[in-house]
Design a protein around this nucleic acid. Structure first.
Lengths: 113, 113
DNA sequence: TGCAATATATAGGACTCCTATGTATATTTG
DNA sequence: CAAATATACATAGGAGTCCTATATATTGCA
């Protein structure tokens, strides 16, 4: 089961930022795999959305990049900047607040486990 | 404080359906006010997104409509159909599951109060 | 050798919501 | 009583975000 694609809208950037905040340094493909794994295949980020998102983060100076070669294969690592770390915090807070509001609206009980 | 507009994407239909499920019969303007009130002004649904959404729900046979006159002013009431009730349940479940997944991803603790 | 996995990238399009605008009635306030 | 605000619906055009499809190339495995 995967979610309606619209649900992801507005959350992709937050997810990527949060992963980078927790892992210091990641590359694109690794991010897609990590998300897939952490969400038990429920969220699968496509390349078509991830790479443009990463490029946008770079353009906004929220991440810095470094290229590495694994044999002959290129790998591009992304690392959060100070601004990126601040933005991550901000985005996570907003998402948290939004979800709390949605729970009230939809009359959902928060459930652990 | 209002949320980034992208966050609402994919959730508007669910919100409208849920309100109709809880209230039997509502009209457009009433929905905007109810959402504003329930979310303490954090979510403000605009007419430009609400009315097309309501028309879409009608087209999909998830709601039925009846027009009423308050003096000379038109008021269009929306009521959930059986299919609409089923769809609401489905949407709320999906949203709940999605939020739970996001909480894991973003390492958010559910909090009451 | 051929397929799957690893790895990045982009053009074009789909979808969803918002801005801006239009129309009209009802109520409140200065 | 005039003006502003609230009530009430509607739509065209546009902005933003993500996906599909495609392209390229290396690596590992059967």
């Amino acid at each position: 089961m995967t979610y309606s694609p619209e649900l992801l809208k507005g959350t992709l950037k937050t997810i990527v930022l949060k992963l980078l905040a927790d892992n210091k340094k990641m590359y694109g493909y690794e991010i897609t795999q990590r998300v897939k794994e952490l969400t038990l295949d429920k969220i699968q980020i496509t390349e078509g959305s991830l790479y443009p998102t990463l490029h946008a983060l770079e353009y906004e100076k929220l991440v810095t990049t470094e290229t590495e070669y694994i044999g002959k294969r290129v790998r591009k690592y992304y690392t959060l900047s100070a601004a990126g770390r601040a933005k991550t915090k901000e985005k996570v807070v907003e998402m948290t607040d939004f979800m709390r509001t949605m729970m009230v609206l939809l009359d959902i009980q928060p459930k652990l486990s």
